[in-house]
Design a binder for these strands. Sequence first.
DNA 1: CGGAACTTTGACACGTCTCAAATGCCGTGG
DNA 2: CCACGGCATTTGAGACGTGTCAAAGTTCCG
Lengths: 236, 236
Amino acid sequence: MIEEYYSKGCQYCSGLSSSIFKSLSSEQYDLLNRKQTCNTYKKGDILYREGSRITGFYCVKSGKFKIYKTGIDYKPQIIAFARTGDITGYRSVLSNEPACTTLEALEDSEVCFIPGEVIFKLIRENPDFSLAIIKLTCKELDHANVFIKDIAQKTVKERLAEILLMLEEYFALDSDDFININLTREDIASIIGTATESVIRILGDLKNERLIELKGKKIKILDKKKIKLIAESILK
Amino acid sequence: MIEEYYSKGCQYCSGLSSSIFKSLSSEQYDLLNRKQTCNTYKKGDILYREGSRITGFYCVKSGKFKIYKTGIDYKPQIIAFARTGDITGYRSVLSNEPACTTLEALEDSEVCFIPGEVIFKLIRENPDFSLAIIKLTCKELDHANVFIKDIAQKTVKERLAEILLMLEEYFALDSDDFININLTREDIASIIGTATESVIRILGDLKNERLIELKGKKIKILDKKKIKLIAESILK
DNA sequence: CGGAACTTTGACACGTCTCAAATGCCGTGG
DNA sequence: CCACGGCATTTGAGACGTGTCAAAGTTCCG
């Protein structure tokens, strides 16, 4: 009975202490569980597209996603990633505007959908929830600003080094100590704003310098200290 | 009496319908007026510095500001501007972290300071106020993401064209139809992430193409349509 | 097994940065 | 009020990083 009750919902959306939902009262928590619905998606599936209307939050139960904007000649610019426990789509819902990014699954995934009206109700009822959302957006805003500075001032190699560190931090390691994410060279290029060939060449350089190891799409950081120095523009 | 009462406060912080304070009740409005204090600053003054602690919001009563992060070799990266009616510093207060940017006056200015505790009180009491802040941060976040895409994918000339349009939109025109802001070539370079000399050369090109007019630091857009096409990567 | 997508390599062109030097502008102090 | 010093602007030459294009090799997946 309890099993069935919770099967609609998602523990990451409501239960984790790290989540923005941690301040909810038990009634609010129940409301959330009742109103949310889960779906599964396959690699390559697009949950929503830039410019479309979205009506609620998406909470990642499992899987990984890339979040991107579309630029000149449909060239994608990856703005962020999402992993288990992350929330996306809130910006557009909260400001009642069309989605400003596209959300695409990087692997098979499960995602909960939380209707916008639930969110607005929670904001009205629970100031701590509002504050949690405010903090979340402020944090993302700072990340975005740091990235603007980096992309404007650093070389491609420095940016690549930085992104490798970010990916390791964000997606952690698999059982062989490789960064636990599969991205194409093109994906990586579209994070740091460069050409696919440049990514390939610089990854090759880093490999020759014995700072990283490559196995297909998998990347392992061998010398984190030096990678950091490169990312900080201290070592060339 | 009334004059004196309001002289502490600032009509832009509390009275304008466009402000985030428009949803305040009359008591909340009074609280805001009682607790805020105004100061004057001179061109070049720094109100707060990246990394320092700030304890409240800054609301611009008059004047103009640049908001920047400091990068490699102390090279500044301008993230945003502030003008009359704008609020800054809220990110750091709301997330209780050190300031992530520096705020510097571009001309003599007046600024109101609103203590953080007032803000938090308003958030607790007034969900509409929370929602206004959330919308504000979401909007800024989207701007930041658009700019990441642009800086990553566009050429210097395209970015410069885009920034000229942004500056005209944001600072409007003076009596001679020039954009109403004085920025050094270096400032402009540090918005779009390029070298000062590149800005000078490309401004010169645009002038020769009769798309803009230059008079010292002042810039006038002569052919907005073509500038837009350049900014959109349609015209080279 | 075949085809499509992805990766790799090379050659080359071009945009942009760097450095250097000259000139112009402006506020400060004599 | 003028002269000075410092800062901003401008211009040129050259180097370098990165993007582009083309072609071949590889991996992935139906």
